[in-house]
Structure formats: structure tokens, C-alpha cells
Simulated scan of single mutants.
Amino acid sequence: MDSPYSHELQVAIHAVQAAAKISQLVLHSDDKGTVDKEDLSPVTIADFAIQALLTATIHGIFPDDSFVGEESATDLRNNPALLNRVWELLLRLQDDEAKALCKLPRSPDDMCEMIDRCGFGEPGGPESGRVWVFDPIDGTKTFVRREAYAINVALLEGGKQVLSVVGCPTLPADTNGPIDNSTVDCTGLGSIVFAVKRYGTYIRQLVETSGEPVPRKIEPHAASASVADLRAVSCYNMLDSGVDDAHEAIMARLGITTKGCDFLAWVLRWVALGLGLANVTVWVYKKRERTGKIWDHAGAMLLFEELGGKITDIDGKEIDFTAGRLLRKNHGFVAAPACIHDIVLKAVHDVLHEQGKAHLLA
């Protein structure tokens, strides 16, 4: 892809390829060094190592850019044994050809500093300049089960998405869907899905076999869709944060009778939309104060938007990536082809009013 972000794109792709190798070193291990964070979500040694690798690599090439990532190094600083495991995992890349394209932290202390550069980073407002956003492993719960997960790398400029690179080690590059958490790429090659603002969405093999894989451009399937064409992606029976009965009623109102794609990881839901395996998703949180996290959505949303998709919250407001690490100015998500987004949004409002849940709307 020839774009103003060609250099950034190549750096991010190489970093994601190396990050995927780290993840796969851990994926089939029974002991992933898993600890629970304050919000009770799990984090593994792969999460820490990947965030350190991504930050060290991109900071080394773009030293003036800022960073936001899911993890901080607090648990590592408080647990020397865990810190050593993460450091030893990174060192396993030293003799790998992927290391030549990336930069490793210089020491365990430098590793912690790289992690914290993201873990305490804020996206900032419209004047914030260039900010990279990382989710080292989105879908850690399914990763621990050796199922689907994604590595998310996004670049924001002034709070707007300009670049998305998502590594999908379990997702075949030639999949036709529907797909779910248990989908496995039997070839072991995986895929990378990427997009640049105004230049489209593409997919290619994650693992290079003979020469550089040729990316395939995804056709803008959402540009002229009708309600009859809607196919859903959601998360079924794995999260207690959403209003499941409302989601089911909304899909029924829209005439969607099949479950479609099913992913715990939000990034993979955006990937499914970007690949045309689905073209609608709705998420209503049970409580108004619940919010999304920037690393679960930034960049990955661009994959769908580049194909004619429109994404708002359930109030119809644009997603605001300048609000902070949490998307505090938005509640829930409604994604659909732009030409019929208003119809989907109306179905959301009608169902919530009918179910006595209008208090979840602004």
C-alpha cells in the first residue's frame, strides 16, 4: 500500500509479527504466568512481553511519539520471579530472525520502563499529536484457553484513527466465516489485517513462507448494504457486562435469525466486520457508567469504517478517542453500514424503550 504512512505500516507489521511469535511461545504452555488485575481480568507473561517489545521497537524509530497500552509494570516490579519470566521470554527472540526487524529492551529495568510508557500513557486531546495505542493480547481469557486472540496496534493523530494493524495468529487469511473463539488456522500461518485512513482495508498472511505475502484488499462491502443483508458479530454467553436480552431483541427486530460470528475479544469483532464476515454489531452495557477501553477499539474500528461502515455509541454519538484511557464520553456501540446505520440505531432505541431500559440512553 502506497500511503503517507507506509513506513509506519511496515514497522508496525514487523513488530506484530515478532509479537505473535512471543504469544505463540506461551499459547500452548500450561503455565502462562497468569495474574489477575484489579478489574479481575487476567494478564499473562505474553501480555507484558509483547507490550515491551511493541513500545521499544516503535519508540526506537519514532522517539517523539506517545504511547498508550493496557498493561503497567507494577506487578512485575512487585514480583521478581514474574519479572524474570517476562525478561526470559523476550530473550528467546534474540536468535530469531524477527528480532532483526525489532528492538528489544536493554535490560529488565528498561523493559519495565517501556511497559509503563504505555501503561500510564494518556491519548490526549485534539492537539496531542501522534499516539500509538496497543493491546498486546486482546482476548486474554480465550488466549489462556488456547483459543482466539488478537494483537492490536493503532496510530492516532490528534485523537483520530489513521492506522490499524491487527495480528490474528488463529485466523486464516482466506477465511469465509462465520468464525468464533474456537476457530483455528490449521496452516499455522495466521493473518494480519490492516488499514490506513482513506486507503482501505487489507489482509495478508501473518507468517512469511516464501517471500513477502501479497496483501488482498477487502472490497467496501458496507457501502451499499440493505437491512436484509445484515449479518451479526457479538459475544455470546461469556460476558456479564452486556444486556443479552436487549441484544437478542434488537437482532430479531432487524430480521437477523442466525448467531453469526462470536468473539470475546472486541478487536476480533472489529476484524470480523472489516473482513465482511459480519456487518453489524450492537453492545449495550448493563450500567450507564460502564465504558469501553481505548485499546480494545482504537484502530481496529478503522477496519470497518474504511469499508463504508459507521460506528457510534448507542446515543448516536461519534466515538471519542480523546476522552482518556476509558471511552468515558460514550456508552456502548452500534456499528452498521453507514447507509442503514440510522435504521439499526432506531431499532436499538425502540427495543430499549419497550424493555423498560430507556435509562441506559442519554
Rank of each mutant, 00 (worst) to 15 (best):
P220L: 09
L104N: 10
E318P: 02
W283D: 07
V162Q: 09
C102R: 07
C168R: 01
N330C: 06
M114Y: 14
Q51I: 08
P80V: 06
W283S: 15
L361Q: 01
Y199P: 05
D64K: 12
D350H: 01
L82W: 11
L91I: 04
I256Q: 10
L93M: 09
I314K: 01
A249Y: 02
K357Y: 05
K287P: 00
D245Y: 02
S182F: 06
P337T: 07
N237Q: 15
L93A: 08
P126F: 12
K37Q: 13
I314G: 02
G124V: 09
G159L: 04
Y149H: 14
N181T: 08
N279P: 04
I319L: 13
V162T: 07
D47F: 03
D315E: 05
G33F: 09
A278R: 01
T258C: 01
S29D: 12
T187G: 03
E8W: 13
C118K: 07
K32Q: 15
N330V: 03
A15R: 02
A18K: 10
H14Y: 13
L27K: 08
S3W: 12
S210N: 14
A272H: 00
A347K: 01
E305D: 11
V43I: 10
G177L: 00
K259F: 05
A52S: 15
A52M: 10
A300D: 09
W266M: 14
L155P: 02
V271K: 01
D96W: 04
W132Q: 07
G292R: 00
V280F: 04
E208L: 03
E248F: 04
D2H: 14
P42L: 05
A49L: 09
L76T: 10
I314N: 03
G159D: 08
G188T: 05
N176T: 15
F62E: 11
G332Q: 03
K103A: 15
A56N: 14
K293V: 11
A232C: 08
V227S: 05
M114L: 08
K346S: 14
G255S: 03
T175P: 00
H341E: 08
A338L: 04
A173G: 01
A49K: 05
E208R: 06
G292I: 00
A225F: 01
E157Q: 10
L277Y: 02
I13N: 08
A246H: 00
R231S: 02
E157N: 07
E212T: 14
